[in-house]
Design a binder for these strands. Structure first.
Length: 581
RNA sequence: UGGGCCGUCGACUAAUGGUAGGUCAAGUGCCUUUGGAGCACUUUGUCUAGGUUCGAAUCCUAGCGGCCCAGCCA
């Protein structure tokens, strides 16, 4: 390349549309330049239907489908269903639902089991080439013969069986003549390879198990390594992108394709997504469900797509998050705060605002007419004019948040306290006069006066208040259950535990706090399950499927950023250090 | 310990031999009928040591550190 061309290209890439690069995209761009696949981009997302998809899968989905979209390519959804003992249609259905929910559409829908016949023929091809043999060693013996990380493996005594005998035995394996575990078909590669995957890997095992799609047709099933690359090849997949731990399998992936002389799909590995305070292992997630630590796979505390959906996450938030995280080959851990940022960002733009009081404290406005009710006009979304407005009933007795009143206000506390004036959002300015307490000395009622001239929240004389608080009219309030979620784990790395413990030691005992008597404004009485709102000043909330007409249940998706909480914490720290010093 | 992969602000990620930039987090200020949102600004970084080069985060060598591999799981 001449310097002048380089300059010209730099100029072109400085165009406004340029997006951050990554090594996967670069690879495709390079291949497009050299016309390696005639301009074709064919991707695939290949989940095993043995569990529910989680946010880690969302990254893979966004990469596979996203890259195809970007380059005008196609993406197949292919179920990697080669292990009937762990798989089920229940999972294939939920996986399809989740992929669609994320907003992606597959071009072809396939199953590795579609290819069982062809795979079987290819196994015979390799036997005929002298590249595969039937091994009678037990699983334990195979393990011993394989050697270790530092010692080479040894040849099985059955390694040099004649082709005819291998053919005969393999056909009888297929016919179901032998019991599970009695024999396997192995590739004949190199028992001394430093890559253990190349030490005569197993291609087929005997499994008299019913498969969710092929029923009892097959008593033998191909291993991942003998199915994945060939499935890619059959579908003419150009880029088979998978996670880093498969890098050691790439030589084997290529070996089968070369031996068979079939379409050369290429595997490229990228890093998995890890999140702080979160586990992504299907095995561990399953334990949480089975041990009743959470309420099912779609518990709003779960990192499953079903859980995030129920929690109130939007597909857009997840996709924006995944895009922001990027892709590389490093093993990093993304801060959960980043995920939360993207759901706040999305919901801020689209969620209607509404007033709800989680921990109610009664306020009585002494100078407000006893039976008067006014409909106050409230904006549905200050971020979006088109969202319009609604009316919220206002009356003499209201609920405000317990946190919004302090009898003895700490420094910098701007909310209601005796003698202080605040604005009730879209209501009036009120001033606290005195309080009623229970036997325990807790404030149970605050008596205030209001300024009738401040209707709607504007003071004609231009005077300012330092705080605006939300409220709900006591007479009109809807009772609701609100479920407040915190991180499921108390440790950023949940599997980091002292000797003798497991990850359940890090479970957060207060990851779910159900508030049974929250008070909502009346417009929320029949909120549809899945509808998302911002409860003003509190956070984003999503109606749960447990909701009944007139008795809604809400999940807190994420809290709003809370500047006061930070100030308060800092002050506590200050007073504590003053005390100790 | 053999092999593979990888080390850039606290976190994630760009810079493709030529100005170390973006997002999150943190902090400051402005603004605000949400202590929200928004706006502006600030702090912090190329694992170490050599080498190649006019010039190195980038290339080379060595060291250090992390992750993955010994399923008839995927």
């Amino acid at each position: 390349m001449t310097p002048s061309t380089a300059e010209a290209e730099t100029g072109a890439s400085a165009a406004p549309e340029s997006r951050p690069s990554n090594f996967l995209r670069d690879r495709i761009v390079d291949d497009l330049k050299t016309n390696k696949y005639n301009g074709r981009v064919q991707m695939r997302f290949p989940p095993e239907p043995n569990g529910y998809l989680h946010i880690g899968h969302a990254k893979a989905i966004c990469i596979d489908f996203g890259l195809a979209e970007e380059f005008g390519g196609k993406t197949n959804l292919r179920f990697d269903d080669t292990n009937p003992e762990k798989e089920d249609v229940e999972y294939v259905e939920s996986i399809m639902e989740d992929v669609k929910w994320l907003g992606f559409h597959w071009d072809g829908l396939y199953y590795a089991s579609d290819y069982f016949d062809r795979l079987y023929e290819w196994a015979i091809t390799l036997i005929n080439k002298g590249k595969a043999y039937v091994d009678d060693l037990s699983a334990e013996e195979i393990r011993q013969y394989r050697g270790t990380l530092t010692e080479p493996g040894r040849a099985s005594p059955y390694r040099n069986r004649p082709v005819a005998e291998n053919l005969n035995l393999f056909e009888r394996m297929r016919a179901g003549e032998f019991p599970d575990g009695s024999r396997v078909l192995r590739a004949k590669i190199d028992m001394t390879s430093p890559n253990l995957n190349m030490r005569d890997p197993v291609m087929y095992r005997i499994l008299h198990a019913e498969h969710h799609r092929t029923g009892n047709k097959w008593p033998i099933y191909p291993m991942y390594d003998f199915a994945h690359g060939q499935s890619d090849s059959i579908e003419k997949v150009t880029y088979s992108m998978c996670s880093l731990e498969f890098a050691d399998h790439q030589p084997l992936y290529n070996w089968f394709i070369e031996q068979l002389g079939i379409f050369p799909s290429q595997q490229i590995e990228f890093d998995r997504l890890s999140l702080t305070y979160t586990i992504m292992s299907k095995r561990l997630l399953r334990r949480l469900v089975e041990e009743g630590r959470v309420n099912g796979w779609d518990d709003p505390r779960m990192p499953t797509l079903g859980g995030l959906r129920r929690r109130g996450y939007t597909p857009e938030a997840i996709r924006n998050f995944v895009a922001a995280v990027g892709v590389s080959r490093t093993n990093g851990i993304v801060d959960l705060a980043m995920l939360e940022h993207f759901v706040r960002e999305d919901l801020n733009k689209r969620a209607p605002r509404v007033m709800a009081v989680l921990r109610p404290l009664k306020v009585v406005i002494d100078n407000y007419p006893e039976n008067q009710v006014e409909e106050m006009v409230a904006q549905n979304n200050p971020e979006d004019e088109r969202a319009g407005s609604r009316e919220v009933p206002f009356s003499r007795e209201l609920y405000i948040e317990q946190d919004d009143f302090r009898e003895l206000p700490p420094p910098k506390y701007f909310r209601l306290s005796p003698g202080k004036e605040v604005r009730l959002r879209y209501g009036y300015f009120i001033t606290a006069k005195n309080v009623l307490k229970n036997d325990k000395g807790e404030v149970v009622e605050v008596h205030c006066t209001y300024d009738p001239a401040t209707r709607g929240g504007n003071a004609p004389d231009g005077r300012k208040v330092k705080s605006t608080i939300h409220w709900v009219s006591a007479r009109h309030a809807i009772n609701a259950e609100v479920r407040i979620y915190e991180n499921l784990f108390t440790n950023p790395d949940p599997i980091d535990v002292p000797e003798g413990h497991d990850f359940t030691k890090n479970l957060n005992p207060s990851s779910l706090v159900a508030i049974s008597h929250a008070k909502l404004e009346p417009s929320l009485a029949n909120a549809a399950a899945g509808s998302r709102y911002q409860f003003e000043r509190l956070g984003y909330f999503c109606a749960d499927p447990d909701s009944k007409p007139g008795a809604p249940v809400f999940n807190r998706t994420v809290a709003l950023k809370d500047t006061w909480a930070k100030v308060e914490k800092k002050q506590e720290k200050l007073t504590n250090t003053n005390k100790t010093s």
